[in-house]
Design a protein around this nucleic acid. Structure first.
Lengths: 332, 332
DNA sequence: CTGTTAGCGCCTTCAG
DNA sequence: CTGAAGGCGCTAACAG
């Protein structure tokens, strides 16, 4: 019902062999310019569309990858970050001529490593971009390390021959944004809302914060907010009164903190991390790191395509920016 | 590198013919329970994973669909609605054993109908779920009507033998939410921020609003906000002062209006439409229609799978709810 | 109810 | 540089 014209027809039309058409399709080197022209003319003439399914079956290379992400971890939030990842990844995949499907953590959460392998194999997936793998996701971690699939981890370590890692310099970013926020100000007693207890990025950010504290002689109370807006809200209500300012390891927690402060009817400056536009809706102008999630995901897909061509895994650090963000506006 | 065990091996292991294995795999009726057991045992034993690529090539049925959506139309917003669509669609696709890819309007915006057809054909796509097709998207509309692909349109009309439409009753929803918002209140002069000038859903919502106005004897000033937060902001600044209340055809416009009112330092009640959680961040409690975008997308995928099995297109109206929403909370 | 036999559309050695 | 031939893993008639 769909495919009417096949490589066979093109070959006939161009007066060449099937394999020759295949060769020009796949940009093989050894084809005379002249025949290439003929073939391309025939392709255009017939409106031929190569059948990727058949190509995949034959070549054993599907060019299919999966974007694995968490769309539910933060129950109370909007979905800006995963959406940005998707946009970046999907666009890059298209550019690279790869096929990409999206898989949510929840869809595979209950599976064993083996079941995951089968699931992805049955989909003919060759590579994975995994966003925000946490230390607790041991099954997924094993899947990555297992070696059946090439992997790019966003915001998680674990480079090997078939795994790359891509992330910002969290330590530096936290240091810088907090410094810009605090330096030269009289705020000395800081409430720092950290992410996860043993989270990869959380730990790095905490190191950055501590380094700054040392440097500026701050006293920092660290509390674990689990990247949760609600937890941040509660912690703020509990600890903020006696502090001068609040630094958060994520924008979402910054929003929770800020909303809490409003409800408490006290003012404390708040500093975020991520640069989501949702920040602009929270009320006032806020300092934050700006992560370009679209670009990060795009780079991840690019890296994955390299891995699939045989290159070895590597560690990629992408740059970040510092901004202040407010409703409908961004100030760099 | 991936598929080690094939249907052939299973057949050998089970001591049956290849086609028999295929039959149990595809749940054909005429297989003796006993042999079915044997085959399944062999499958489990060998950890066999059917290769969907080969199956698709052979059967000419790929079970692949595309979710086509707009992730950029409202430049200034977060991406809650498209994300909800994706989650609903992807989960249902998995449940139905279908393969789903996401395509953004921007990726195909410049294409002709023909190019779109080829693009989807090359991806072996058999059906499309198109979200928020507007009257201006004539190329995409033609693609849908062309008949090469089964289509389900979310929030756009156009039922035919191969096209279904799915949406809430916009007229009723707008009537109801505005009624709940206004009935029994002294607000008589209403500013109504409509969506698009000739938009499908916009027109219906406007009808609902007008019906209510008639009924309650309201005077309604209608202005077109294009579903834009910024436009709503401007219109509010321009017209709100002399009005008693503002009714908006989308949550995003409601937020724009509300933020404007705050900046103007006047108070006017605002009513929204959609029920996005972003509303909760905008400041105060707001009335709104609640659309369950996840369910809508899930139903769309389900409907598409029916279409692909040969059923004719139809018009599906899904129920909506009315809620009041505020930060981290929903009041029904 | 089960096995045999052609392909699906393309890629890929291998001769020519 | 080009063509012929043999699959990739599976499905779908058709025989048996």
């Amino acid at each position: 019902m769909q495919e009417l014209v096949s490589i066979r027809d093109v070959a006939k039309e161009a007066g060449v062999a099937i394999s020759t058409v295949s060769k020009v399709l796949n940009h093989y080197p050894n084809v005379r310019e002249e025949t290439k022209q003929k073939v391309n003319a025939a392709i255009a003439e017939l409106g031929f569309v190569p059948n990727t399914i058949a190509a995949a079956l034959s070549s054993k290379r599907t060019g299919r990858i999966a974007l694995v992400l968490d769309a539910s971890r933060h129950a109370q939030t909007v979905d800006e970050i995963p959406m940005q990842y998707m946009i970046g990844a999907i666009n890059m995949a298209k550019e690279k001529g790869m096929d990409i499907i999206t898989v949510f953590f929840t869809m595979i959460a209950e599976m064993t490593v083996d079941e995951m392998v089968r699931y992805f194999q049955s989909q003919s997936i060759e590579g994975l971009v995994i966003c925000g793998l946490s230390k607790e996701d041991i099954t997924l971690r094993k899947l990555a390390e297992d070696g059946k699939f090439k992997c790019v981890l966003i915001d998680a370590p674990g480079v090997s021959d078939h795994i790359s890692s891509i992330h910002i310099d969290n330590e530096k970013a936290q240091y810088e944004v907090a410094k810009k926020f605090l330096d030269g100000k009289p705020y000395k007693k800081i409430l720092y809302l950290s992410g996860k207890k043993d989270g990869y990025v959380s730990e790095e950010r905490l190191v950055g914060m501590n380094r700054l504290a040392q440097e500026l002689g701050l006293s920092v109370l660290v509390r674990t907010g689990n990247f949760s807006e609600l937890a941040a809200r509660k912690l703020t209500m509990q600890y903020a009164e006696s502090k001068d300012a609040i630094v958060c390891a994520s924008d979402l927690m910054a929003i929770g903190a800020m909303k809490a402060l409003i409800d408490m009817d006290i003012y404390r400056p708040v500093c975020g991390f991520d640069g989501v536009s949702l920040m602009g809706y929270a009320g006032k102008q806020m300092h934050t790191v700006k992560q370009d999630f679209q670009r990060i995901a795009a780079s991840a897909v690019e890296e994955l395509s390299c891995l699939m061509e045989g290159r070895s895994g590597r560690d990629i650090v992408v740059p970040h920016k510092l901004i202040r963000i407010k409703y409908l506006d961004v100030i760099s």
